[in-house]
Design a protein around this nucleic acid. Structure first.
Lengths: 272, 272
DNA sequence: CGGCGGTTTGACCTTCCTCAACTTCTGTGG
DNA sequence: CCACAGAAGTTGAGGAAGGTCAAACCGCCG
């Protein structure tokens, strides 16, 4: 039984599994329910998914490019980056994934990995066999659509990144990433958009923004100098969300928020 | 009945429609079959889709951002660009779509348009009501998966663009785009990868690559000077595919080619 | 023939990269 | 509790890639 995984030792206990499953699958279900409406039967079908808990240390590859995928990777804790390897040794991060995300859900329809997944912090994941997810999608068409929509969110974020990398200077890119992370953490119930943990290092921000480490550092300082953000311990505080999102030209539409407005946000997307 | 469309006059005739439908839907079906296996019943279900033919002149928006989507847009002729509008008036193209593509298939699961679609050349499209596609997906689970996989291809291309825009100089980006277009046109049966029409202007290439027009021009000349490409009329000739794809670091994996190898390409993806 | 969209060229300037050193933080073992 | 090593963050100087502006040029079509 091969793992496409660098996990450090046997850390799965019979008793731990069920609790971790609850802990892991509920946020994922919540993420799906932000966009899709599922029946109670479908809820339980998702919550009953089986998987193997594994941990990855920072900088370890969860999936190396070029290998076939047998398991989807549901993040329990930590941050995972999808990356593309460049010939000169550099990496470009093409997507960031937070707890509650399945970072390779698209593998349900295309289980070949031309991409890589790297733990950007100490990470706990639940490895769910692709075949189980595919079976679930086959039995419950609504779940198939929910999965598809979930990957559409990722695609939408990816398109926004293209836009930011193509047009947009270092300040705009960094500001946008901070806004995006803040809102996504808030959505996931992990923090607020104006106060969230800075979970990844500047080198990794650089790989995400297509900048050098040095320039990320200077740009970060420039945002601090202007009173937009601040750091307290490992927390990033956004002191002026208005100005930061203006610099970023941040329009949360691209996160495909809303539909079922359980969060009671006053400003919501209205599909006419 | 509102159109989200700038089409120039009443150009749909009863007699024309059926032939255009054949002409339009067959390449789309072929595109799906490149990745997915569908039953004969599903084939005909797709070929029997109804839509309205419309034309868009170059530079006309097919879908403006911020409007709701009621129709999916199957390209019959021409090139369509997905773009994101930037505050300073610039545009960043986030995806290019060729004949046979439905350029907003994701609207089946998320019919809200935060993006825009622009005709990058004189374009003929078939506007298919989203509700019909959704119904099709509901009735035929295999079609739902095929649609999902089709949007996954787009997402995969998008991720590659992020990688190229983030790390990669002008030469690499342009070379990669030329390789991508060549292979995609070849897949679509429109041309070969070493000789294909240059359907879009340098200004639009600039908007896709995140470069200035001037720099695209100079980079193009530099590729010509090195004997990699040539122009004959409106055709782009790739004289040295090897060297061009090396410069581009072009690895066709990201196009998610293969599965059913009808093209007889010797080098194919082998999911281990 | 004139005009328009697309392409080409040159000069100058900004942004960001590279390299290399240095500092601060963090965790680990003595 | 300190010492140390490794990782992360910070700083400065010089250089390269690409942007901006402005002007010409070309082919196409009315």
């Amino acid at each position: 039984m091969q793992h496409e995984f660098d996990f450090d030792g046997a850390d799965e206990q019979g008793s731990e599994i069920s609790t971790v499953h609850q802990f892991a699958l509920k946020p994922f279900l919540a993420r799906l329910l932000r966009h899709s409406r599922l029946s109670l039967e479908e809820h339980t079908a998702i919550l009953n998914l089986k998987g193997r808990v594994a941990r990855a240390n920072i900088h370890h590859d969860i999936v190396s490019s070029g290998r076939a995928i047998s398991h989807a990777c549901l993040i329990v804790q930590g941050v995972v980056g999808r990356f593309d390897q460049i010939a000169d040794g550099h990496r470009q991060i093409t997507a960031l994934h937070l707890p509650g995300d399945i970072c390779n859900l698209h593998s349900v329809v295309w289980p070949d990995a031309w991409l890589g997944l790297e733990a950007l912090s100490a990470t706990t994941v639940l490895l769910i066999p692709i075949v189980e997810l595919r079976a679930l999608a086959a039995i419950h068409p609504a779940i198939a659509l929910a999965f598809w929509l979930d990957t559409t969110v990722d695609a939408s974020i990816c398109a926004k990144w293209v836009s930011k990398l193509g047009r947009g200077d270092a300040r705009g890119r960094l500001a946008h990433l901070l806004c995006e992370l803040g809102v996504r953490m808030e959505q996931a119930g992990l923090a607020t958009r104006t106060e969230f943990p800075s979970m990844i290092a500047q080198a990794q921000i650089a790989d995400a923004l297509g900048l050098s480490i040095v320039h990320v550092n200077r740009t970060m300082q420039s945002l601090k100098r202007d009173g937009l953000i601040r750091k307290r311990g490992h927390m990033i505080l956004v002191d002026d969300w208005e100005r930061l999102s203006t610099i970023a030209e941040f329009d949360p539409h691209f996160l495909l928020i809303a539909v079922s407005d359980e969060t009671g946000k006053s400003e919501k997307v209205t599909p006419r």
